Amino acid sequence: MLFSRIVYASLLVGLLSALVLSAVQQWQVAPIIFAAEAYEGAEYTPTLAAEEADGHSHEHGHHDHSHGEEWAPADGAERLFYSLMSNLFAGIGFSLVLMAIMSQLQLRGMINLTPAKGILWGFAGFVAVFAAPAIGLPPEIPGIEAPPVEYRQIWWLLTVALTGAGIAVLIFASIRYKVAGLALMLLPHIIGAPMISGAEFKHPDPVVVAELTSLHHEFITISAVANLLFWLVIGLASSWAVSRWIVKHDVVET
């Protein structure tokens, strides 16, 4: 029964967090992506890119952002749907893991969840899953040069695992092990993230490169804010679900 309640709660928490993240992405993140995609074609100028980001049509006709590459969802409702589904699956998965850990610690008397502590749990998740990996591998916009995806995935997984373990050691382990927690968190950055040789953007126009660089910095900031909100919602909603429904019912039944 405990597992089934965690699963049901994760569906609701995942939906709530996905809606929040998708709303922020649609409002703030998507315009930056559209503007960067408009620069992927060498014929695009800053003026044309700005028009495309605002949704205006021009003499080049509809730009589908494909450039002969692999399939991508069309702009508009289809793109929004796939983004929402991706955020939903992420929200369900993260909240499922978070509530499973919370429930076990609450049942063992190691924590006493409150809304404030739920926010701290969410912030810890943000640090482990987004902030720490972003130090070595910042969020990317279209047109940026990046290392092979398999190398990035391996380093991301390593960083998330070690950062999460390090945070757990810092919070729950005795004082003499605190240094080990910091060492775990620093280890992936000592190893180093996969890097590229050369410039991040290889557009032939230096004006466009400067604009893409500015967009990239803005994208990193907005992505951080969006993901922070996403994780705070997960932490707060998960703590409420565990303390008010999941563990409470389990204690009554046992």
Rank of each mutant, 00 (worst) to 15 (best):
F3G: 10
S4P: 01
Y8N: 09
S10Q: 04
V13L: 03
G14N: 04
S17R: 01
L19C: 07
V20Q: 03
S22P: 01
S22M: 12
Q25M: 12
Q25T: 05
Q25F: 15
W27E: 14
V29G: 00
A30S: 07
I33A: 13
A36D: 15
T45H: 04
A49F: 05
E52R: 13
D54I: 02
H56T: 04
S57D: 14
E59C: 00
H60Q: 14
H65E: 07
H65M: 11
S66Q: 14
S66N: 14
G68H: 02
E70N: 06
G76P: 10
E78S: 12
L80T: 06
S83Y: 01
M85K: 03
F89D: 04
A90F: 00
G93S: 07
L96D: 01
M99S: 03
M99E: 05
I101E: 14
M102L: 14
S103R: 06
S103N: 12
M110L: 15
I111S: 09
I111Y: 07
I111P: 04
I111W: 03
P115T: 05
W121G: 01
G122E: 11
F130D: 02
F130A: 00
A131W: 10
A132S: 11
P133W: 00
P133L: 02
P133D: 09
A134L: 06
L137Q: 02
E140S: 04
A146P: 00
P147T: 03
L157M: 10
V160H: 05
F172Y: 11
R176W: 11
A180P: 04
L182V: 10
A183S: 10
M185V: 10
L186D: 12
H189P: 06
H189T: 04
A193T: 11
G198R: 10
G198C: 10
E200L: 03
F201M: 14
K202L: 11
D205R: 00
P206R: 04
V207R: 03
A210N: 11
A210T: 13
S214G: 12
L215A: 12
L215G: 12
H216S: 15
F219G: 06
I220N: 01
T221P: 00
I222T: 12
I222V: 13
A224T: 02
N227T: 07
N227G: 07
W231E: 06
L236I: 08
S238T: 09
W240E: 09
A241T: 04
A241C: 01
V251G: 02
V252Y: 08
E253A: 12
